[in-house]
């Protein structure tokens, strides 16, 4: 009975990233965001690791992993490669998407650059279609201040429906708040409720038809609406991933 389909599936993906939770007190946290928004800096500050940081996009080519503690929980932090979107145009985008999608992180922290919020928000909105458990971390507030840009963090939280934390990671400002927000979401003290985007009627109609068909096929937390959207925009690969999962289901039943 130990091998349920869910654990098997989860294990397969976790194996890719070599992440095994030692005990239920450990939480899996993914760090996503556009390139060069300071993900690696935040990663280093939280975990005390010395992942090389630098002011250029594409610095993190592999997933870095580290640990930190807050209150009674231990957190496994995974630094994902920076991407502009989750449409699988490149290896980085695919890796980031697969981890958020199949890696089942307890919370995904999305790091955005306060100086170019609009472009960063595209990725945020895409991630929020996959998972509800997300926190927005608005980094580089000092740069924004230098450029005389003000960001209304409270309003942003209301607009998106998820917790928003402002940080200046290089000066270690706001990181305590970020850690606490991660903790609160992980223990379900805060339950983010992202506002979903409403698409043009033509797409919404298709979604209404597709979602009831897809829902019974999905056994884990992946959002059926998101999968339906991917089917509509012709992402063949995501369907392959899901059929890999159903293969897993069969194997588990036999085992």
């Amino acid at each position: 009975m130990g091998l349920t389909c869910k654990s098997c599936k989860r294990k397969a993906i976790l194996d890719i990233y070599n992440i095994v939770k030692a005990n239920p007190n450990q939480m899996l946290v993914a760090l996503a965001g556009n390139p060069n928004t300071g993900k690696s800096t935040i990663f280093n500050e939280l975990t005390g690791l010395k992942q090389h940081t630098g002011n250029w996009p594409g610095k993190t080519v592999t997933n870095a992993r580290g640990y930190f503690k807050n209150k009674d929980k231990e957190f496994i932090l995974v630094d994902l490669p920076g991407t502009y979107s989750l449409f699988p145009n490149s290896v980085e985008e695919e890796v980031a998407r697969d981890f958020i999608c199949f890696g089942n992180p307890d919370v995904t922290v999305i790091v955005v650059d306060a100086t170019c919020l609009e472009r960063n928000l595209n990725l945020v909105l895409q991630i929020l279609e996959i998972t509800d458990n997300a926190i927005l971390c608005v980094n580089l507030l000092d740069e924004a201040k230098r450029k005389k840009i003000q960001v209304d963090l409270d309003r942003l939280s209301v607009e998106l429906g998820i917790p928003v934390v402002g940080t200046i990671a290089r000066d270690k400002k706001g990181l305590k708040n970020l850690k606490d927000a991660i903790y609160d979401v992980c223990v379900k003290k805060i339950i983010p409720q992202p506002k979903k985007i409403t698409y043009p009627k033509e797409i919404e109609d298709e979604l209404q038809k597709l979602i009831p068909m897809i829902t019974p096929l999905i056994t884990n937390k992946i959002n059926p609406r998101w999968i339906a959207l991917r089917m509509l925009d012709g992402d063949i690969k995501i369907l392959e991933r899901i059929s890999q999962n159903s293969y897993c289901k069969g194997a588990c039943n036999h085992g």
Binding site: F87, N122, L160, D233
Partner: peptide, 26 residues
């Protein structure tokens, strides 16, 4: 469809940005 989806995402991002970001002219 992808065009529609991407356009919707951009539109929403733009709306949010307009609501929360203010620039001082400099």
């Amino acid at each position: 469809y992808r065009d529609y989806i991407v356009t919707s995402l951009y539109k929403r991002a733009n709306e949010i940005e307009k609501a929360v970001v203010s620039y001082s002219k400099d």
